[in-house]
């Protein structure tokens, strides 16, 4: 036997079958990736080709008009979306983070009520958004709170909608802080609360804020719950406070797409461009935050 033959007998060449399997599987993966990108590309192409030319400073600063498409803008929708996002953030950040801290740091995991809370949160995150809209309508707009179809009601409803997601993400971020950090802090005579406030939360802030931004970007894209609780259609005024009637970008988009006038439909495409730009910016900030501040343990 030559040296080459010996080598070949020790490390046999890959069989044809193995090679074929590898390339078929690789091809399938590439194909699914391409399909996803094609879909995304088609959507972006569809609304930008129609809507990009619509987006001008006038479009952003004008109120919607029911009669003249060229004079119709998204000023009230943008302000409504900003208001909703702020209300939602103010509610969801403290409640979500505190719940996550309780579940991760204080709750005894084998107690039945803690397990129930946990399962409930998992399930709530999968509840369709329109159901939250009905909840908002029954308990916030009417019923016990009776706020009417105002900004506060919209913000609270969206906060309820994304709260489970924020809790789940915050818990993951808190869990990623290794127990050795908690031990180190407690061994120095820190109380549990000092340990949470000075070690655990700073160590998980990147994960928590990334999750919050992604949750908020989901909230501002929601149409169904706002529709159910009764957002205004094409209002020609901006919200002035928590008790104002309001609209939001997705509601404005929906209103325009339902108009028989072709011109209004291209207005909708323009509003989609703006909404997508806001979402892209928010997601980029989330990615940047994660890369910049994520703690490698």
């Amino acid at each position: 036997m030559t040296a080459a033959q010996i080598a070949a007998s020790v490390i046999p060449k890959a069989s044809g079958r193995d090679k074929a399997g590898t390339s078929v599987f690789g091809g399938l993966m590439l194909a699914s990736l391409a399909l996803a990108f094609l879909g995304l590309g088609a959507i972006i192409w569809d609304f930008t080709s129609d809507g990009l030319s619509v987006v001008t400073w006038d479009f952003i600063t004008k109120f919607p008009s029911r009669v003249i498409p060229e004079n119709s803008g998204i000023n009230s929708a943008i302000w409504g979306t900003i208001w909703l996002m702020v209300i939602c953030a103010v509610l969801v950040i403290p409640i979500g983070v505190m719940t996550a801290v309780y579940l991760e740091e204080y709750a005894e995991k084998d107690r039945w009520y803690n397990r129930m809370i946990e399962i409930n949160i998992q399930n709530l995150s999968a509840v369709p958004s329109v159901v939250y809209g009905i909840l908002g309508l029954a308990f916030i707009v009417r019923g016990p709170l009776s706020l009417g179809p105002v900004l506060a009601a919209g913000g609270i409803t969206l906060a309820l909608l994304v709260l489970p997601v924020v809790i789940i993400v915050a818990r993951e971020a808190i869990r990623a802080v290794p127990p050795s950090i908690r031990e180190g802090s407690l061994a120095l005579g820190a109380t549990q609360w000092q340990t949470i406030w000075k070690q655990v939360l700073p160590g998980s802030i990147a994960g928590i804020s990334t999750g919050v931004i992604l949750a908020l970007s989901r909230a501002i894209g929601e149409t169904a719950p706002l529709l159910v609780i009764g957002a205004a259609v094409s209002p020609r005024f901006n919200p002035t406070g928590l008790d104002s009637a309001f609209t939001a970008l997705p509601i404005q988009i929906l209103a325009w797409t339902q108009d028989p006038d072709r011109e209004f439909i291209s207005r909708a495409a323009g509003a989609i461009v703006v909404l997508m730009a806001i979402l892209l910016i928010m997601n980029s900030v989330a990615i940047w935050l994660r890369n910049r501040y994520e703690q490698k343990w």
Partner: peptide
């Protein structure tokens, strides 16, 4: 107390 694995704070 000092632990098995060094656990500096970040």
């Amino acid at each position: 107390m000092v632990f098995q694995k060094p656990n500096p704070f970040p």
